[in-house]
Amino acid sequence: MGKKSISLTFITLIVGFMLAIQFQSVQEPVVRDTRDTWQLREDLQKEKDLQARLIREIRSNEEKLAQYETERKQSKEEALRNTLNELKEEVGLTDVTGPGVKLYIDKVNEGLYLENVEASISPDSLKRLLNEINMYGAKHVSVGGQRVINTTVIREIAGETKINGRSLKSFPIEILIVTEDFQTAKKLANRMEVSEVAEEFFIDNLTVNVLKPEMKITVPAYEDVIRVRNIEAVKSE
C-alpha cells in the first residue's frame, strides 16, 4: 500500500505541476483592452501630439547642426586648416594618391656578361632623370620609397648614392610618379619610353623600365621633419 501510494503521489505531483504550468501559459494575456472609440481617439491624439513634438525637436536640432556646420566652414580656423593641409600636400608631408606612372631602375640582364656586373646608380644621372620627369608634368615623385621634395638632396656619400640620407643600393629601384590626370600620365610614360636620359643609365649597367600608367598610384609622405632655416616670417605693420 505504501509503495503504491508513493508512486501515485509522484504522478499526481507531475500532473499538478503540468496543469499549473499550462494554466500560466494560457492565461498570459490577462489585461484586456476595454477602451471605447472615444478613448482610443483621445489616446491616438495624445500619441500624435507627442510625435509632432518629437519631429519639431528633431528639426530644430538638425537646423542647429547645419548652422554650426556652416559657421565652422566659414570660420577662420577652418580656412587656416585648409590652407595648412594644402601646403602640407604641396610640400610633401602627406601621402598622395592619383593617376601616375611607375618606373623601375634595374641592373642590366646579367646574362649579357660573363662576369658579375657591378651596378650602382650615379647621382648625376638620377638628378637628370628627375629633372626630366618633372619637366614632363610629374606632380609628386618618390624614389625607392623616399619622397622627393624641394629640399631633397641626391648625392654620393662614401661611394654610395643617397637620397634624403638613405642609400639607394637594392635594385630594382622603384620610382613612383603621380601626375595631374591620366592623360598627363600617359604622355609622361610615352616620353620616358623614348627619353635619352633613360638610355644613359646603360653606361652604369642599368636599365629604366617604364610600366603602363595606372589610375591609382600612392606616393609616400616625406619621412623626416622639414627644418626651416634662413626663413623668417614677414612682420606686417
Binding site: T12, L13, G16, F17, A20, F23
Partner: peptide, 20 residues
C-alpha cells in the same frame, strides 16, 4: 497522499513562475 501531491504540484507550478 495523492491529493496532497496534486496540491503540492500545482503550488510548485504556480510558484516557479515558469511558462512555456
Amino acid at each position: 497522499l495523492p491529493v496532497l501531491g496534486l496540491i503540492i504540484g500545482v503550488l510548485l507550478g504556480f510558484l516557479t513562475d515558469f511558462s512555456i
